[in-house]
Nucleic acid binder design. Structure first.
Length: 450
RNA sequence: GGUGGGAUGGCCGAGAGGCUGAAGGCACUCGCCUGCUAAGCGAGUAGGGGGGCAUAACCUCCCUCCAGGGUUCGAAUCCCUGUCCCACCGCCA
């Protein structure tokens, strides 16, 4: 949410900056509602002051034993007037609020101006795409042949854009989650959180998902609860309606959560495979900091996310999004794009944003400066650190072999309990493994059901 | 889901229609004093919204005692609804 003072003080500049965002915004309407509101408010405050004086006078007179009937009648009339005005003020306030909630954040001056992703700017890259001496397969072929991704059954259980991970696939996903969380908590100083995966409307409003993007969310019809589209929502809202002591800043949180997105409006895009799913896993990074630090914190948060790809040896590039390509709440965003050999393209795997005080205003999250100074809004940042499903895809495709197996990146091997290659397991092999622990526990004796 | 009890400032806690934005305590900050690891004394310490004004200092008005309604000249205080917390019962991984 933008500061109403921006509308009062420099509307032309505001319109110019908002012009670099896609869409039309009711700046003039807000300005006019705001000035009407203040007019009524000033008038009503004067009436309230008069009522307060009158009530005190009545109390004094009553002490002398007389009933000031005339004054009481006058105050009653004023009271009715005040009630009428208060209603009008509340109506104006909610209109203004509703309009403000639908206006996106202002891009920072350093953000490249442009209508869409074509105007994005690469800021750095890591690694070089591997040269294959065979035709690299897409992850859906690799995954199905290895028996670790099951798209058909995902659809049977739910609908399209749901996938079942099996065996080493599920294991790899779990390994990635643990690897990412360990790096961020043990090396980058983030505090691990396990938040609720369902949150209420106020929480969704805080980070900007509501009211404008309800159709992108899954909701629970009989409760005021929504499935989180990203852990950014619960992590950032941890401090909704709070005043944080300055010495506690910056607050750095990380969480693994599944994410749920309806993907409304993306029909036909990335339908094959598990690049774009209704449910996917992600490790998220969130920072809450003071205003003067937020752009430095954005750099370090982006580097923290990049570290995951660096250690996994996956080629990627980091791009600064243009004004037209940025999300609703962001004032500046870097996307990390990982190389996908089957598509011969870099594809988004992380998005790191500084939201400035945009979300803080919505959440009413403030901090008190040291020594009991004034309170002001914090700045909030978030970034994927990183998307687990897409990372799994990138590993399958970048580390595939001619034989159809997949080599596990070295840093993940300990998280896979020593498994360094995913190969298609024979059925016999699986059965032997299954029997081995049964025998270990029960010997060869016949088992009865527990 | 049922019954009962609660919700007051950073924290604890009083208040039971009228100078109560709120006693008292704790905590913190500043000052004074004391020469010894700390005591004593004094002062101060909520948030928001208007107006004056330079988006400073300062002045002024209004609102806020969980939220929303209601009664009243006047509500932290009375009434209604909701939310959350606690206890017991029921159910349950």
């Amino acid at each position: 949410m933008l500061d109403i003072r921006l509308f009062r003080e420099n509307p032309e500049e505001l319109k110019r900056i908002l012009g670099s965002r896609n869409g039309n915004f009711p700046v003039d309407e807000i300005i006019s509602l705001d000035s009407q509101r203040r007019e009524i408010l000033t008038l009503t405050d004067e009436l309230k002051a008069e009522r307060n004086r009158g009530s005190r006078a009545i109390a004094e007179i009553k002490k002398t034993g007389t009933e000031p009937l005339e004054l009481m009648e006058k105050m009653r009339a004023i009271g009715e007037e005040i009630k009428k005005n208060d209603t009008r003020i509340a109506e104006h306030e909610s209109s203004i609020q509703n309009l403000l909630l639908e206006i996106p954040n202002l891009p920072h001056a350093s953000v490249p101006v442009g209508d869409d992703e074509a105007a994005n700017v690469e800021v750095r890259s890591f690694g070089t795409p591997r040269e294959f001496d065979f035709e690299p397969k897409a992850h859906w072929d690799i995954g199905e042949e290895l028996g670790i991704l099951d798209f058909e059954r995902g659809v049977r259980l739910a609908e399209s854009r749901f996938t079942v991970l099996k065996g080493a696939g599920a294991r790899l996903s779990r390994a990635l989650i643990n690897f990412m969380l360990n790096v961020h908590t043990l090396e980058h100083g983030f505090l691990e959180i396990e938040p609720p995966f369902l949150v209420n409307s106020e929480t969704m409003k805080g980070t900007g998902q509501l009211p404008k993007f309800a159709e992108d969310l899954y909701s629970c019809s009989s409760d005021d609860l929504w499935l989180i589209p990203t852990a950014e929502v619960p992590l950032t809202n941890l401090h909704r309606e709070e005043i944080i002591p300055e010495e506690d800043l910056p607050l750095c949180y990380t969480a693994y959560t599944p994410c749920f997105r309806r993907e409304a409006g993306s029909h036909g895009r990335d339908v094959r495979g598990m690049l774009r799913q209704h449910q996917f896993d992600k490790v998220e990074l969130v920072k809450i900091c003071s205003p003067e630090d937020s752009f430095d914190e954005l750099e370090s948060l982006t580097l923290a996310a990049e570290q995951i790809l660096v250690r996994l040896g996956l080629p990627f590039r980091t791009v600064a999004l243009s004004t037209g390509d940025m999300g609703f709440s962001a004032s500046k965003t870097y996307d990390l794009e990982v190389w996908l050999p089957s598509q011969h393209k870099y594809r988004e795997i992380s998005s790191c944003s500084n939201c400035g005080d945009f979300q803080a205003r919505r959440m009413n999250t403030r901090f008190r400066t040291k020594g009991g100074g004034r309170v002001q809004f914090v700045h909030t940042l978030n970034g994927s650190g990183i998307a687990v499903g897409r990372c799994l895809i990138a590993i399958l495709e970048n580390y595939q072999t001619k034989e159809g197996s997949v080599v596990i990146p070295e840093v993940l091997v300990p998280y896979m309990d020593g498994v360094s290659v995913i190969e298609r397991p024979s059925k016999k092999c699986q059965r032997t493994a299954k029997m081995s622990w049964v025998k270990r526990l029960f010997g060869t004796a016949k088992m009865s059901s527990p």
